[in-house]
Design a protein around this nucleic acid. Structure first.
Lengths: 205, 205
DNA sequence: TTGCTTACATACAAATATGAATGTATATTA
DNA sequence: TAATATACATTCATATTTGTATGTAAGCAA
């Protein structure tokens, strides 16, 4: 296999990314060598280095392939339309994110890698900063939605939208972490719907 | 420095543990070599290997030094005494844990290492299982406390103690994660008290 | 005081990983 | 169709890391 067409090269590239995800998941990012990724992708290290300059870049591409669409989805989903029921809107958003995890193994695996199979030091601390930035965005939008809920009289008395937004965000990051760690699903994966409903219901008047 | 007394050997051992924590924090567990730990502790690899059979064991000891007392504290603190105000009890427990982070740099650093500077694969997945077990215990005790709160009529109508306990646990693991990641403290570290108060207040009648 | 053990330091061998250099056959293009 | 750039495979030189093996001086027990 020497010189592929452009299209085939693109397929090779994607195979390498998928292989990286798989090996990262099994062995953790640090312990994974370029050789292992290459083998898993059915190529040699030469090919991997041709497409990616090093493991960090490969990791970033893998991550962005999953996260950029996900962030878009969040942005769309949290858009402040003329929603009659802001609280239900928040609930739908949370459920939707969980649904994305259930439906896409690539998303699921990438989450798992990022949460418990990656060490955020040196080059990787940049990733952490990006994640925190996203959090900020989500919190802001949650706050706006809670503000609208308050304006509509959906909320219990005197609840501060900013605080509610933070509480929801913390609840949800906790949920995502537990969702990922709870491999057999008995504790959280099978109960997300009820947990989310309960969380939102605590806010309702 | 050739042959120390028993006491001095114990000091050396502790210095190695502290050095490991420091290097783990800087470079992540995987990237840390025994050589780096030894250098940081002012000894050679020979000493490190004399005290610990490998990096994994050293990690475990470091972790247990911080976590076993912490778990004890939790057990004590969540004990079901004749408390008049179960909700306040929960609030105190949460605040106390945060306080432990604020007061002890070893605790703080160990948390940071375990959350964002360690990859839970192979030997380390055992640690993850232990953590989840602890979570179970905490959730159970929270549930009992919420049950007592319900019996005392502290809770809003028809709230299920089990659900409330899970929600609190998710909130708090989210908070711990964010607390650790929010290095400059602007987002969460300075607001934990209010966040916790708000969270508990959502449950109050 | 002798002899054994401890608490390390030093030296060694083997494995593994990296990046770059080089080779090469085929697409692509002029 | 000839020249060139592409998409890899192969090779090489260089670190790095690990575990162990061996050395050694001082503590400790008899």
């Amino acid at each position: 296999m020497v010189r592929q067409t452009k299209e085939n090269a693109e397929l090779t590239r994607q195979r390498i990314i998928d292989a990286a995800r798989q090996v990262f998941l099994e062995r953790g990012v640090s312990r994974t060598s370029m050789e292992q990724i290459a083998t898993a992708a059915g190529v040699t290290r030469g090919a991997v280095y041709w497409h990616f300059s090093n493991k960090t870049e490969l990791f970033s591409v893998m991550r962005e392939q999953v996260f950029l669409p996900l962030i878009d989805r969040m942005d769309d989903n949290l858009q402040l339309e003329n929603n009659e029921d802001p609280l239900a809107h928040i609930e739908n958003f949370l459920n939707g994110t969980i649904q994305a995890l259930n439906e896409s193994s690539a998303t699921r695996e990438t989450y798992e890698i990022m949460m418990i199979k990656c060490e955020y030091v040196e080059e990787f601390s940049e990733v952490l900063r990006q994640i925190l930035n996203n959090c900020d965005g989500i919190i802001q939008k949650l706050e706006q939605l809670y503000q609208r809920a308050k304006n509509k009289g959906q909320l219990r008395a005197s609840k501060d939208p900013a605080q509610l937004a933070l509480d929801t965000h913390l609840f949800f990051s906790g949920l995502l972490h537990m969702w990922v760690k709870d491999i057999d699903g008995s504790h959280f994966r099978n109960r997300t719907h009820a947990l989310i409903a309960n969380h939102i219901d605590l806010r309702r008047k």
